[in-house]
Amino acid sequence: MAVLLLAEVTGGELAMDATAKAVTAAQALGDVTVLAAGASAAAAGDAAAKIAGVSKVLVAEDASLGHRLAEPTAALIASLAGDYEHIVAPATTDAKNILPRVAALLDVMIISDATAVVDGATFERPIYAGNAIQTMKSSDAKKVITFRTANFDAAGEGGSASVETISAADNPGLSEWVENKVAKSDRPELTSAGIVVSGGRGVGSEEDFALIETLADKLGAAVGASRAAVDSGYAANDLQVGQTGKVVAPELYVAVGISGAIQHLAGMKDSKVIVAINKDEEAPIFQVADFGLVADLFDAVPELTQKL
């Protein structure tokens, strides 16, 4: 039984953490072949070959694959599908864009955001913003799956897979990349950070969001945000944690001025230790917090930053 795993490649570079976590999930299913696709993907392919548990790497380089547009990337994966029983990827926005398209091209269902592998056909996944966990058994001949990275440990290094170059599928030419607006940050990446400090509407303004950033920097943490903080313009969209944002499970999650709506909890309640700082003692965030501090964040956060 063979598994084809779409590596997360951004601007020619392998996103090691997301890819290595998906490798761990995929190893339970069979022999793992990694596909590194991009305008340049050779370096990403070489990096993927070193992940323990990868038996083969396919590198597809073509301008049409440069920005992970769904149509050419899905066409390439579908053209390779004959050799594999499972087609998988880490549940990133790229994979969520591409893999459902692959599944439909193969006339099979997609299994999104799987959190556990029960057997080769059976998977657990959260539904209703994580308020229920469903175990689903697929009757499809091929299984197309995205794995929620927060639920799997990254596979280690030490592999030495063979690398083979393949060509891209025909580009249907339906869409074109125009531009990226990527926030540059020296902070750890949200989904792989050991500590996350998130701010909500309670922070009140973009300027005061610096309080969250300063605390994060003191802790060497990534910065996150609630939807309300993003919608209000305090934080960038890629920092949103929740049902429709990123799912994180760090060692420590600090929620500041966040009420704890179920849609937010869906993205962080598997964190190991949760701290909540909120002036409303009734806020639902306290129900999931290990340590709750009922306080005005404008007093508590500077004090915490200073004393740590």
Partner: peptide, 10 residues
């Protein structure tokens, strides 16, 4: 809205 920020396509 993508993981890294925003991407515009045509």
């Amino acid at each position: 809205e993508v993981d890294g920020g925003l991407q515009t396509i045509s």
